[in-house]
Amino acid sequence: MKLKLKIWRQKDPHSRGKFVNYRLNDISADSSFLEMLDVLNEELISKGEEPVVYDHDCREGICGACGLYINGRPHGPDSLITVCQLHMRKFKNGDTIVIEPWRARAFPVIRDLMVDRDAFDKLIQEGGYVSVNTGSAPDANSIPVKKVYADLSMDAAACIGCGACVAACKNASAMLFVGAKVSHLTLLPQGKVESNERVRDMVAKMDELGFGNCTNTGACEAECPKGIKLTNIARLNREYYRATF
């Protein structure tokens, strides 16, 4: 298939950046989106130009490294997938594809389509863990956990930290990310113990890092490659009020 690409190119965080147009003539519908970009980069390299820079690693939808804003949607025109799992059969011959980086104050552009998501690590460092030292754990079956809670916790824990929720949100809010982590841990007896401190610290950090505020539009849920539910945000709210009052 033939494609027109309109890709955001930006040398470094401080330069202005602009869209550059490219054309590709022979793309297999069975190749993945990133393989299509590989082809583009091969062409650019052979012409002596600099390839388009973007984060990617596992290419199986789990590491969370890749994240491109394609035709107005994070991870492109399919649901429940990351860009690396997006296949070109989702596009039509002759399509124009606009590719932009995640846009958020908390995720500054490093180059082209690569952004700095350090803010997510900082959020986890603020309490997104259970304070237990190695070697001090009781037998794994000593605390039974209701299956329904274990399952809900797993639903939330499936977050891959790609940042699509922030990218999709019109307010660049990180509530789904924080909500998922708070839910994952607070739903389990092991994580419940320090749930108050966790939620207070993580919310304070989230505000400090310059994410926007949740207006419950649901864009994050619609674009989350792991299908993490908006109910996690409500749970975050509940946990926060419980910890505050």
Binding site: Y69, G72, R103
Partner: peptide, 9 residues
Amino acid sequence: YNKANYSNT
């Protein structure tokens, strides 16, 4: 964003 948000919301 240059291209508006098309997320299903």
